[in-house]
Write a protein that binds this DNA or RNA. Structure first.
Lengths: 143, 143
DNA sequence: TATTGTTATACTCTATAACTATA
DNA sequence: TATAGTTATAGAGTATAACAATA
């Protein structure tokens, strides 16, 4: 049976190229709100659901637990997140967005969404629908 | 007009997650052949067409010109590429794969292809076709 | 003077291990 | 002793600038 995709470019190469275009499109949005990529990832994860430990948050966004500390420090200093010791186990830090954090996240997310939509602007509606659905499926496969 | 994709996950987040899965799947293949990610990118670019300058090659794979030097050194040492001064302008280095380089590249690419196909294994043929076509389109948009 | 390739330097990002405070 | 979080250190990866050879 012949393979119709035999001569397609590497999937990896295509993902990297498109990923770079995405980052380039999103960087100015994040910069305008003075939020780093990791900071945005943290806001996004906490917007989905508050977390009971920093380790769980790190795992959720695919980062090392030592790497998010500085990010949490800054977000807390700007009063975008709350980080308080759990009274029942004072080793763990309960993490959640403040109203200000939720508000900022909503703004940034809307602008990022708009930038992404511009990148997808050349697609037909049918293609766009399939692409997003498939990508969602592929990105949720187990590590 | 309502937006049916309003609540989709961030495109960037999905691309990053899928990109990580791809890298994880391809890393053992590259390691088995003792080729780095950048080394593979170089082999791939030169397999498409020989290049007249290292700067052009760097641009083609989205790397800095200073960063590919060590990679070219190693590939040359292993006799996978040829790098000779252009007689007509001795500043530039003509770059091309050796037969051994072309052979190694074909092997690695076939295995990477197979690994990628496994990741896409859960898709219907129609979805896979649309996904690859759209991704190809999106990855070729101007920077 | 401009360009190709190279080397040197510094800077950022990331991972590992050691430390503290709680349990 | 085990765990959550933190700090310190070192390593990899990357970018910038200075340099050598050639045009």
């Amino acid at each position: 049976m012949p393979d119709p995709d035999r001569d397609r470019p590497d999937l990896g190469a295509m993902i990297v190229r498109f990923g770079r275009a995405l980052i380039a499109a999103e960087r100015p949005v994040l910069a305008a709100h003075d939020v780093s990529m990791w900071g945005y990832a943290v806001l996004s994860a906490l917007a989905d659901e508050p977390m009971r430990t920093q380790a769980a948050l790190a795992r959720a966004i695919g980062a090392d637990k030592t790497r998010i500390i500085g990010i949490l420090d800054e977000l807390q200093e700007r009063a975008l997140i709350e980080r308080e010791p759990d009274p029942e186990d004072r080793r763990v830090r309960l993490l959640r967005l403040t109203p200000a954090g939720r508000h900022l996240y909503a703004s940034v997310r809307a602008e990022i969404h708009a930038a992404e939509e511009r990148l997808l602007g050349g697609l037909t509606l049918a293609d766009k629908g399939v692409f997003l659905r498939v990508l969602q499926q592929l990105s949720h496969e187990p590590d």
